[in-house]
Amino acid sequence: MMAAEELGTLLDTLCPMFVLVDDAERVGQVGSTLQKLRPDHPMAGRRFLDIFELLRPRSATEFPALLSTSGARLRLRFHDSPRTTFKGLVVPLPGQGVTVINLSFGISVLDAVRDYALTSADFSGTDLAIELLYLVEAKSAAMEASRSLNLRLQGAMLAAEEQAYTDTLTGLKNRRAMDHILGHLISTKSSFALMHLDLDFFKSVNDRLGHAAGDYVLQQAAKIMLQETRSDDTVARVGGDEFVLIFKGMTDRRKLNSIAGRLISQLCLPMKFDGSACGISASVGTALSTQFESPKAQDILHAADLALYAAKRNGRSCHRFYCEMSDTRQSG
């Protein structure tokens, strides 16, 4: 007959979550891993059913009934928290006066590893839980790498898309972005105003002071336009010295005229580049989406162009609205 101490040592090597229960239904020895789950509450000496609650089979409510299930699978859990669930197998040892109940975590092994900070050393060398843990760890690492890659790809796509819609010199929207925004506003039947702004005398700045000065003027003009518009308005550079401003939800002529007046006043102020004055002004033409029964982007852009030409004919540095009654007359 094997001594109880030798039996416990053997079982701890083969199945470190075993419980030895004597005929008095008290725990004699427990596996090192099982005791690790309750480090401050030794299980030895306590009644088995004071520690564990039997879930399956339902008929086994007392320990003698549990012994009759020898070889059958059990399901049980701790009475106290965390109420970890176990699978079990009962094996009475003839002539030893004890019963071996071998436990395992089953599918709850991942939760158990998390709750109790278990490592591979806490499991039997033949326990498939080790392989499962490695697989889960590898899968988690792969998923994290995939997520990180997807985030980088998404960021690169967003950056590329942003670049495709941005004027690189001024940081404003470009014509492609303007077309997209106009299409969206029209498709959603949103009211808006479209302002076409042209820098007067810009060519003379380029010819007299060079392209670096011209680029500086364009950048300063872009800053002024951004300062005089709302965050949800659109400011786009659509040509060398041509800009389009779109004001969503704004069709009040007095407000639009006031904005155009501020833009013209700011852009008429001399800009200094390397000590030289860059004198420009601005002409502005505005069309409203509400002026068209069935608004189309090309029609609204054409109307704003006509209003801009009227402003230039009027001596520049001024603002004109498109007059829907005639393509040749403009009203201030």
Rank of each mutant, 00 (worst) to 15 (best):
V91D: 08
G106I: 00
S104T: 09
S104C: 08
V100R: 13
L55E: 11
K36P: 09
V98L: 13
P92K: 15
P82C: 01
N102F: 01
C15Y: 01
A60K: 02
T84L: 13
P57L: 04
R47S: 00
V27L: 07
F18C: 05
A72T: 10
L37H: 10
F18W: 04
E53R: 13
G71S: 09
D22I: 11
G88I: 15
D80A: 14
K36T: 10
K87D: 15
V27K: 05
R56S: 06
K36Y: 03
A112E: 07
D115A: 10
P92G: 14
F63T: 02
P42Q: 08
Y116D: 13
F78H: 08
D50W: 00
R26Q: 08
V27S: 02
V91A: 14
L55C: 04
M17E: 15
G31E: 07
E53I: 04
S81R: 03
F86R: 10
L103N: 06
P39N: 10
L34P: 11
V30N: 07
S32P: 03
T61K: 11
L103G: 02
D23Y: 01
R26E: 06
V21T: 14
A24D: 13
V100A: 08
V113H: 14
F48I: 05
L49V: 03
P42I: 07
R38D: 11
R46L: 04
S32W: 01
A24L: 09
D12Y: 03
L20N: 06
A72D: 11
D23V: 07
I101V: 12
K36L: 14
P82M: 05
D115C: 11
D115Y: 15
G97W: 04
D40C: 04
R73M: 13
A72H: 12
A65E: 15
G71R: 05
A44V: 06
Q35D: 10
Q29T: 09
R58F: 06
T84N: 03
R46D: 01
T13K: 09
I51H: 02
T13F: 06
S104M: 07
M17Q: 12
H41Y: 04
R83D: 07
D23W: 02
A72C: 13
R114P: 00
L93C: 10
G97Y: 05
P82N: 01
G28S: 09
G106V: 03
A44M: 05
H41P: 00
F48A: 03
P42T: 12
V91Q: 13
D12F: 02
D23N: 11
L14S: 09
D111M: 09
V19G: 04
V90D: 13
G31I: 05
L89S: 14
R77A: 14
